[in-house]
Amino acid sequence: GATAVSEWTEYKTADGKTYYYNNRTEESTWEKPQELK
C-alpha cells in the first residue's frame, strides 16, 4: 500500500514525558499509535 504521512506528531510534556497528538482527529495519547510501530 501507499505510505501515508502519519497524522501523529510526537510531543514532550514539561516533565519530559512523550505523548502523541493526531492532527486529523485531535486525539492525544500516551501510547505509541499503531501507525508509528
Rank of each mutant, 00 (worst) to 15 (best):
A4G: 11
A4I: 14
E31Y: 08
A2F: 13
T29D: 03
E31F: 09
T13K: 03
T25E: 02
Y21D: 00
E10Y: 04
N23F: 11
A2R: 08
T29R: 11
E7P: 07
N23R: 11
D15G: 07
Y20M: 00
W8G: 00
G1E: 12
Y20A: 00
E10S: 05
Y20L: 00
K37F: 14
T25S: 04
Y11T: 05
T9N: 08
K37R: 13
T13W: 02
T13S: 08
A2Y: 11
K32L: 09
V5A: 14
P33M: 02
G1N: 13
W8L: 01
S28V: 15
E7Y: 08
Y19A: 04
S6R: 10
N23A: 14
A2N: 13
N22S: 03
Y11F: 13
D15Q: 05
Y20E: 00
T13M: 06
K12W: 06
K17L: 11
P33F: 03
S6I: 09
T3W: 09
Y20N: 00
Q34V: 13
Q34F: 12
Y20I: 00
W30V: 06
E27D: 04
S28L: 15
A2P: 13
V5D: 11
K32N: 05
E31Q: 09
A4T: 14
A4H: 14
T9D: 05
A2M: 12
E35S: 10
G1D: 12
T18D: 03
E27F: 04
E27L: 06
Q34L: 13
D15H: 04
N22E: 01
R24S: 09
T9F: 10
L36Q: 05
P33N: 02
N23T: 15
T9S: 11
E31S: 06
N22W: 02
E27R: 04
N22H: 03
G16R: 00
A2H: 14
K32G: 03
R24W: 11
N22R: 01
Y11S: 04
E7V: 07
E10P: 05
T29L: 08
T13Q: 04
K37S: 15
W30N: 07
K17Y: 09
A14Y: 03
D15W: 08
Y21E: 03
L36F: 12
A14H: 10
A14P: 12
K37C: 15
K32R: 11
T29Q: 10
Y21S: 02
R24I: 15
G1Q: 14
W8F: 02
Y11V: 14
S6V: 09
Y19D: 01
T29K: 05
T13A: 08
S28D: 03
E35V: 07
G1I: 14
Y20Q: 00
A2E: 13
S6N: 12
W30T: 10
K32P: 07
S28M: 15
Y20K: 00
T18A: 06
K32W: 04
Y21P: 01
G16A: 01
K12I: 13
R24Q: 09
